[in-house]
Amino acid sequence: MKAVIQRVTEASVTINGVVKSEIKQGLLVLLGVTHDDTKEDIEWLTNKIVGLRIFSDNDGAMNLSVGDVDGDILVISQFTLYASTKKGNRPSFLEAARPDKAIPMYEEFVSTLSRKRNKPTYTGEFGADMKVQLLNDGPVTIVIDTKNKR
């Protein structure tokens, strides 16, 4: 799994002109799933995300997690994180998991985040044409790949 995590002061996702989800302070997570991802990857990545200390404390140091600031999380499926641009100029998405694998993994990821935080996790809609808006705070953007745990 790959995740692009952005600290935001607000974010929303719109589908067919209708806002499906919106958050204020928190994290926008773009999530990509590949063929060999497992439930262990979900556990590891969700632990990383809820524990990331990327919010400022009273001294201005990044020392607080999303839970410490009572922030929300918006997760958007993003198969394009597995784009390969090695040949030519048209990206290949062969490393992205097909929907029959990716959808259950995405849903399990969202439900695991909600369970670990005892708070709803907001989402887009898998496979939909989504318009994502965000106000990146900092900017702070972190990229995590479960294949690079060490």
Rank of each mutant, 00 (worst) to 15 (best):
L113G: 05
M105C: 09
S84N: 15
E43C: 13
T112H: 00
A83H: 06
Q133C: 04
E108T: 09
G138T: 08
V13Q: 07
V110C: 12
K131L: 08
S92G: 07
N47T: 13
I144H: 04
T146D: 01
D37L: 10
G88S: 01
G127L: 01
I23Y: 04
I23R: 06
D137P: 09
D59P: 03
G51D: 04
G60V: 07
Y106P: 04
K116P: 06
T146G: 01
N136C: 03
S114P: 08
Q78D: 01
G124Q: 04
D100P: 09
I76F: 09
D72Y: 06
L74Y: 09
V69Q: 12
K39M: 13
G127I: 01
V132Q: 12
I73C: 02
I54R: 13
K149W: 06
S12E: 07
V110A: 07
V140Q: 00
P91T: 05
T123V: 13
I23A: 03
G51T: 03
I49L: 05
K48G: 00
I142K: 05
V50Q: 10
A102G: 09
E43H: 13
D137C: 06
D70Y: 13
R115E: 11
D129P: 03
D68Y: 10
P99N: 11
K87R: 13
K101E: 07
G17L: 15
E22G: 13
F109C: 05
R150A: 10
M130R: 12
I5H: 02
V143Q: 06
F109N: 05
G124R: 06
V75D: 08
M62Q: 08
K20F: 13
G88H: 00
N16L: 14
R90F: 00
V4M: 00
G88N: 00
G67R: 08
I76K: 12
K119T: 09
R115T: 11
K147N: 04
V66R: 06
K101L: 14
K39W: 11
L45K: 08
A3L: 08
R150I: 08
L27F: 12
R98K: 15
D36S: 05
K86F: 01
K39E: 15
I54D: 07
F109P: 06
I15T: 14
S21W: 03
K119I: 07
E95Y: 02
D72L: 07
N118L: 10
N16S: 15
M1G: 00
V50K: 14
F55H: 01
T141W: 06
T34M: 12
R117A: 02
S21Q: 05
G138E: 04
N63H: 06
S12D: 04
K39P: 10
D59F: 10
V4H: 00
K149V: 07
V66W: 03
F93L: 02
K86V: 00
D72I: 05
A61Q: 14
S56H: 11
R150N: 11
I73K: 04
T46A: 13
V143T: 10
L52Y: 11
S114G: 10
A102P: 12
G124C: 05
V132P: 12
N63L: 02
P120M: 08
T112L: 01
D68A: 14
